[in-house]
């Protein structure tokens, strides 16, 4: 797989202007960014950027926008630490730093002609949204497409506008569930793995893409195995500490891989042994 070369030294960010900030959930914001420098490498669904907040630091954040519109870089940020809080609190016109795009991509080409199951938990929908944009722009290339999405509660669902639009389509099966319903919730209740009972796809002709907390990933893989989707057609996206994004800082090591450049998207059969290990 060809790796797009960044235009500058790999450790030096380019600046990008914040065009818009949208609050997704009580602690999650979506930033859309316009790099000051044109001609940056296009991203592929599943890749991430290192995003820098002036003087505070840098974090890896997956790219959540439409791959057909690479001039707008969309990042969904959950405010959990100093850097993500600073990014989440930025306002239009502010400037952040960007390095990337880094990492491996979801196999949208390999999935052509097959059924596609996209299973996301919580903020795990963020790296998968570019897949849905891509698939919907090239809908004829795919057979059945199913999105299974679970979140903690209604308030913590990402991209509600997209979800509603997608639910309205006849060529996309969207199943959403929450663990903790409030009085206004009329949808499914239960964990995302339970949605598989309702999902219609042909296991032998399916490519499945999974992202969410690691527990969710492990149980979703079991569900896919139970349904008969082979390991080599399921893909997961993993999260690890990253300082460089380019495979030289060592922080994201998981067994024999660096999650930053051998991942974050892995074919399950190549990483399965390490997913079950404790403190790997």
């Amino acid at each position: 797989m060809a790796v797009p070369q960044p235009v500058l030294e790999p450790m030096v960010p380019v600046t990008a202007k914040v065009l818009g900030v949208r609050r997704e959930t009580p602690d999650t914001w979506t930033l859309s960014l316009e790099p000051d420098r044109p001609g940056l490498p296009a991203f592929r669904p599943g890749q991430f950027n290192m995003v820098y907040a002036f003087g505070i630091g840098e974090v890896p954040i997956s790219i959540s926008g439409d791959p057909a519109r690479p001039e707008r870089l969309v990042h969904t940020v959950r405010a959990v630490g100093a850097v993500t809080r600073a990014l989440a609190g930025s306002r239009p016109g502010q400037v952040v730093g960007l390095r990337g795009p880094f990492g491996t991509a979801w196999p949208v080409e390999e999935a052509r002609g097959r059924d596609l199951v996209v299973a996301a938990g919580g903020i795990g929908l963020a790296p998968l949204r570019p897949v849905l944009y891509h698939v919907l722009s090239n809908r004829a290339d795919y057979d059945r497409v199913v999105l299974l999405y679970g979140a903690r509660s209604r308030a913590e669902l990402l991209y509600r506008r997209d979800l509603e639009r997608w639910r309205g389509r006849f060529d996309l099966d969207v199943l959403v569930t929450v663990d903790r319903p409030d009085a206004r919730w009329r949808g499914n209740v239960g964990v995302v793995t339970a949605l598989f009972q309702q999902a219609a796809f042909r296991p032998e002709a399916t490519v499945a893409l999974v992202c969410g907390p690691e527990v969710m990933i492990r149980f979703t893989l079991l569900e896919l195995e139970k349904r008969g989707v082979p390991d080599h057609r399921t893909y997961v996206s993993l999260e690890r500490n990253m300082k460089c994004g380019v495979g030289t800082c060592g922080h994201c090591q998981l067994g024999p891989v660096f999650v930053c450049h051998d991942g974050p998207v892995f074919r399950t059969d190549r990483i399965r042994d390490w997913l079950g290990k404790r403190e790997p």
């Binding site: 602690d27 959950r78 959990v80 938990g121 919580g122 679970g150 979140a151 903690r152 913590e156 663990d179 903790r180 239960g190 964990v191 793995t193 339970a194 969410g212 907390p213 527990v215 969710m216 149980f219």
Partner: peptide
């Protein structure tokens, strides 16, 4: 499913 719900895996 109930165990995973108790685990509250999406909790911050």
């Amino acid at each position: 499913a109930a165990r995973l719900q108790i685990l509250d895996m999406f909790r911050r």
